[in-house]
Nucleic acid binder design. Structure first.
Length: 575
RNA sequence: CGGGGUGUGGCGCAGCCUGGUAGCGCGCUUCGUUCGGGACGAAGAAGUCGGAGGUUCGAAUCCUCUCAUCCCGACCA
């Protein structure tokens, strides 16, 4: 490709509304342009990258035996009503009506559609297992789209859905997808980690997310310093900080704390270690509970994990915090003075709270706290559960090492769905006994457009993008110096361009009549992995200048050898 | 949904407080001089000042409404 025929829509200045580097660079390098909030046009350069990622995904999915389909982006409401999600799904679902006032949505995901397909097309266990996938545009009406294509409303996704006769078969497909995803992200040149994820209210036994490690990631993941354990903080199991409670030394006493309404104020005003404070959160109770509300206790410096809390049967799902009025009415004290002692509603203590001695908590009387509370002696320990987010330094749940915390960008998610959709939509096949069996399902997603942003987030410098070779829009930038005035340079450039192109290398020949610095800056901004400079000087010696995007020095290479040299570099996947 | 910010040629911004009929940088077009790290000079094209209404002799500027967009927050006592 020649720059004279390929628009490089680069910008020198940073667009005002781009926050993170990948978003800024995607705009500056001319990969994308914003149309409206969360909606982006991919320019020719960006499309080349997108297609590279798509090709890798497709190759590896095909290799795994999955079969490509293409489903409609617009989906009839009836199927969503059948699965129950027409009501469950919130405002994220973009609902539409056609000219006959029939209801549709723009698909944020395709479980209903694929299940409808499967129940019609699959009749026998002999057709299983089967895994369908597509690469297609999704729309989710995000509360707050941000960071360019990282969290946009419309985005390109690879989604796959497997149908299996039983759990063992599903597990096998799931494992196969796990290795397939690892191959895909490795081939994309990403540093990533598979982590255990919350399987959510949808049910299902297992779920892993694939995260690209990056400071700007929106997810927080915890992993063991020694073992293999890695999990999304939403999911990571929080063990008690110590195996058992130390013996209590203090006796319980009530203290006037008129100005301590938060844990921080309590700690500051009474010189009290935050590890010996307990906060009491009042939430709506689950349906089986007699009380309307239930109290959750976590240590003062810990955060409640809402996903864990609402998965408890005693707690209403979705989680709902009591209002100040409800708290006043139920307990007789305001939110700043709550605690387990003399509490008129049931309460669940986090594991760490259960092993804390001599702790302080509200007295359920406004402006008063108890200090030196001990379980058993002062208040019975009713129930213990894992309620909190892990923090750095917690013991790792696999028993080896402690937990570290890092940020990640979720680029893939694999999920054992089980029978949620197949049950609701009656997707069965006949088993070997001729009996109808509900199929069990898995689903497997990759955010293709997000992968592009994640790759940049992970690999860039002050000058621009540094593409992993496998997804770079071009592999080699060929920059002739003064081509418009030097017949020799022009001829050498054309010859080398022909040679490299015929070797199957994707070359971008910069045949614009611009100054060298301009070319260098553009090529570095758009992140082409290999750069060849052709000039009178080096041609005198029969050489060209080579520089990898990751390097800061040129090396001189014989003109005759450069083709082989590049081919070697590319086949090694080095950049 | 709550709070805050911003809307002025393609992009980045000034002008607004104190009303007088729009300007700078980048980019773009043409010509000339340049030519190995984002050149210089000259000439040019390009803006319903987000939209509607109002105040005024006169509104980018003041007032009201509205739309768009970005950031922060969305119950952790």
């Amino acid at each position: 490709m020649r720059t004279s025929q390929f628009p490089l829509q680069t910008l020198k200045e940073n667009p005002a509304d781009a926050e993170i580097s990948s978003h800024q660079l995607m705009l500056r390098a001319g990969l994308i342009r914003k149309l409206a909030a969360g909606l982006y046009t991919w320019l020719p350069l960006g499309v080349r990258v997108l297609k590279k990622v798509e090709a890798i995904v497709r190759e590896e999915m095909d290799r795994s035996g999955a079969l490509e389909v293409l489903m409609p982006a617009v989906q009839p409401a009836e199927l969503w009503q059948e699965s129950g999600r027409w009501e469950e799904y919130g405002p994220e679902l973009l609902r539409l009506k056609d000219r006959h006032q029939r209801e549709f949505c723009f698909g944020p995901t395709h479980e209903e559609i694929i299940t409808e397909l499967a129940r019609n097309e699959l009749q026998s266990y002999k057709q299983l297992p089967i895994n369908f996938y597509q690469i297609q545009t999704k729309f989710r009406d995000e509360i707050r789209p941000r960071f360019g294509v990282m969290r946009s409303r419309e985005f390109l996704m690879k989604d796959a859905y497997s149908f299996n006769i039983d759990q063992a078969s599903l597990q096998a497909t799931y494992n196969l997808m796990h290795t397939t995803y690892s191959r895909i992200f490795s081939r994309c040149g990403l540093t990533f980690r598979a982590v255990q994820a919350d399987s959510g209210a949808i049910g299902g036994s297992a779920s892993h997310e694939f995260h690209v490690m990056a400071e700007s990631g929106e997810d927080i993941i915890a992993f063991s310093t020694k073992g293999d354990y890695a999990a999304n903080v939403e999911k990571a199991e929080a063990l008690a900080s110590v195996p058992e409670a130390p013996p209590g030394k203090e006796s319980m006493k009530m203290v006037d704390t008129p100005d301590a309404r938060t844990i921080q104020q309590l700690v500051d005003q009474f010189d009290h270690p935050v590890e010996q404070t307990v906060k009491t959160l009042i939430v709506a109770a689950g349906e089986e509970e007699e009380a309307n509300f239930i109290a959750l206790l976590v240590r003062g410096d810990h955060d409640l994990n809402e996903v864990k809390a609402q998965s408890l049967p005693q707690v209403a799902s979705p989680l709902r915090f009591a209002t100040d009025e409800e708290i006043m009415e139920t307990i007789g004290a305001g939110p700043g003075s709550l605690g387990p002692v003399n509490l008129p509603i049931p309460c669940i203590a986090d594991r760490t709270v259960a092993v804390t001695a001599d702790f302080s908590a509200g007295a359920n009387i406004d402006g008063k706290h108890y200090f030196g509370i001990n379980w058993g002696r002062d208040v019975p320990l009713q129930e213990i559960a894992d309620l909190r987010n892990v923090i750095e330094g917690d013991p790792s749940p696999d028993g080896s090492g402690t937990l570290q915390i890092a940020r990640g960008i979720e680029v893939g998610h694999i999920f054992q769905l089980g029978k949620k959709y197949s049950d609701a939509m009656n997707a069965t096949v006949l088993d070997e006994n001729g009996r109808a069996q509900t199929m069990t399902m898995g689903c497997y997603g990759i955010g293709v457009s997000r992968v592009v942003a994640a790759a940049i987030e992970q690999s860039h410098d002050a000058k621009g993008v540094i593409w992993p070779a496998s997804i770079a829009p071009f592999q080699v930038a060929l920059l002739p110096m003064k081509m418009s005035r030097s017949q020799r340079v022009r001829e050498a450039a054309e010859a080398l361009y022909e040679q490299l192109t015929s070797r199957g290398i994707e070359v971008l020949l910069d045949d614009r009549d611009v100054r060298p610095g301009f070319m260098f800056a553009d090529m570095e901004l758009i992140g082409i992995p290999h750069r060849i400079v052709l000039g009178e000087r080096s041609l005198d010696e029969g050489k060209v200048e080579y520089r990898a995007r990751t390097q800061s020095e040129n090396s001189m290479i014989e003109l005759e050898r450069i083709g082989d040299f590049l081919q070697d570099a590319l086949s090694q996947g080095t950049s």
